[in-house]
Amino acid sequence: MSLFRRWRLIIGGVTLGSVITAGIFLIPPVVTSQSWPWKWADWTGIGEDKIKKTSTETKGGENGSIEKVTVTNEPQSGKTLWDFLELLAVPFLLLYLGYQLQQKDKEVANINLREEALHRYLDRVSDLLINNKVNTLEPDDPLLEAISDTIRTKTLATLHSFDKDGERKGSVIQFLIEVELISNGDSIVLNLSSASLKGAKLSGTQLSRIQLSKADLSDADLSDANLSNAKLIGTNLRNANLIGADLTGADLTNADLRGANLRGSNLDGANLDGAKVTNANLSNAHLSRADFIDA
């Protein structure tokens, strides 16, 4: 028997024992009857309310006559279990609604913080490129390397801060594509190795020759993306959506493609030496000249 099943049985036994124990101690005070059927105790409020009626006689009316006056008292029943439950329900409901509002406020605040972080990143990188006139610098200029290192550091930190926010991760990469810092840059080709891109929304993006070795692209949407000649050595692509992706000539050495959907993708000439492809969907994929040695 697996450890998980043992724990389920233990927890189930404890829960059942707790219910039985609670029933033993709670039912007798609530149910009062010596014979079947049981009758709920009055204080629980379960069942019909009892109305008590009393009559009194009063003598000595006007002119010495005797009058008989019947007085009927119909007292309201005392607070029952259900009355107390109603009293408790209101504050608990208010607490629950307050908690939900608080969680919603936190969610909105987190979204605003991530949006502010994205704008700060975009502004900072744009300022670096414009103020230093990167396009006019020579390829061997030491300033280019310093700017590249700064942008890489800020990019990796920003992507990591977005955690599970795939939309904003995709926005960062799209921005880098537009300013030609990833694969087609004349001055800077940004190295994004070890980048945190889990769950990133990158469908249809142009990522040719991008350097993403040892990056985390698990659960990412890369459908119809252009990853031709990309450096994906040791990259985590578990459960990634690569439907229709162009991976011609890509280096996927030791990449983790377990559970990835590669249906209809183009792996012509790709290097998958040592790659993990367990449960990967390769239906209709183009695999001519692909290297699967030790995969």
Rank of each mutant, 00 (worst) to 15 (best):
V31G: 01
T54Y: 09
P37H: 02
V31W: 10
V30E: 04
G45Q: 00
T70D: 11
N63L: 03
I27N: 15
N63D: 03
D42L: 06
K59D: 08
G45L: 01
K59W: 06
S33N: 06
A22T: 13
K53V: 12
K50Y: 09
T15D: 15
D42M: 07
V30S: 00
S33V: 02
W43M: 03
F25I: 08
V69R: 06
K68N: 14
V71K: 13
N63M: 06
K39S: 12
I20F: 15
A41E: 01
I66K: 08
W40S: 02
L16N: 14
I20Q: 01
L26D: 02
G47D: 02
T21K: 12
K53I: 10
A41V: 01
D42I: 06
S55H: 07
T32C: 07
K39I: 09
K53N: 10
K68F: 15
E67T: 15
E62K: 07
P28T: 07
T21H: 08
K53P: 12
T21D: 14
T21C: 13
I24R: 06
K50R: 11
T21E: 04
K52W: 09
W43T: 07
G64H: 01
K52E: 09
V31D: 12
T54A: 04
V31T: 06
A41T: 01
K53D: 06
N63K: 11
E57H: 05
